[in-house]
Simulated assay, not measured.
Amino acid sequence: MTTPADTQAIAERQLCGLVNGLAQRIAEHVRERAATLGLTASQATALREMSGPMTMRELAERMSCEPSNTTFVVDKLEKQGLVERHPHPTDRRAKHLVLTAEGAALRERLLGLLVVDSPLSGLTPQDQRVLHGLLARAITGS
């Protein structure tokens, strides 16, 4: 006999499997698109997240990784002439990461590639808003 707890556990396992599967498809999509531009997935993720000047810590949070890993990625982007480190306007201990003109242009190309055949492109804009709301609630617990 299946108990309510068993039913709940099965439902959560299935949902976790779907979320994990989607995350894997998105990661593969990013890897494929990044490779066409000569970037690693981590570099592409950093460029995607750099919507304006930000600190290394802010970028690490957006990339969901440790600042030390972000430093490695940014070092590579800096060597490629895509990112520069500028003095932070209010914190002399921090640096602001800023896209160069070349970095901004490459980011725009990347953003265009990421929406083509995206794992989420089969969802309507309304479906995407609903999914966004549900995932945000699941993450925040509210």
Rank of each mutant, 00 (worst) to 15 (best):
T40F: 11
L113V: 11
K76W: 13
E61M: 08
Q126D: 13
M50N: 00
V19N: 14
M1Y: 09
R92M: 06
H86S: 06
A41F: 05
H132G: 11
R62S: 15
A104G: 08
L120W: 12
T36I: 00
L106T: 10
P125N: 12
G141H: 02
E61H: 08
A101G: 04
L37R: 01
L77D: 00
Q8L: 15
T45Y: 08
R93V: 02
T140P: 01
T100M: 03
A9Y: 00
R85F: 06
V74W: 06
R85D: 02
R31K: 01
L134E: 09
S68Y: 12
A46I: 04
L113F: 01
D91S: 03
M56W: 01
M63K: 02
A60T: 14
K76C: 07
P125G: 02
S142Q: 13
C16R: 15
V130P: 00
A27P: 05
G17N: 05
P53E: 12
E108L: 05
L77G: 03
R85W: 11
P87K: 11
T100L: 06
H88R: 01
L22C: 09
V83S: 08
L97K: 11
L77F: 03
T40P: 06
F72G: 03
T45I: 13
A5C: 04
A44W: 04
V73T: 09
L113N: 05
S121P: 11
R92I: 08
C16D: 15
S118C: 13
S121I: 01
R137A: 14
R85L: 12
Q43S: 07
V116M: 01
R62M: 07
G17C: 05
A11E: 07
L97I: 07
G38T: 05
M1P: 12
H96D: 12
D91N: 11
P125V: 02
T3L: 14
R57C: 07
M56I: 13
R48S: 01
H96E: 15
S121E: 12
T90M: 04
P67S: 12
R57I: 08
L77P: 10
R107F: 08
E61G: 06
A104T: 09
V30R: 07
M1N: 14
L59P: 06
C16M: 10
T45C: 04
L114R: 10
V116I: 15
L114M: 01
P119S: 11
A23F: 09
L22P: 00
L99K: 09
D91P: 07
R109I: 08
L106D: 00
S42Q: 09
R129P: 03
T71Q: 13
F72Y: 07
R31H: 01
S42M: 09
A60H: 00
E28H: 10
D91L: 02
R31I: 00
R48L: 08
V98I: 07
R93L: 09
H96F: 12
T90S: 14
V19H: 04
L77S: 04
A35H: 07
M54G: 08
L134A: 11
L37I: 10
H96N: 08
L97V: 10
Q126C: 09
A23D: 07
E84D: 04
L131C: 06
M1I: 03
A44D: 10
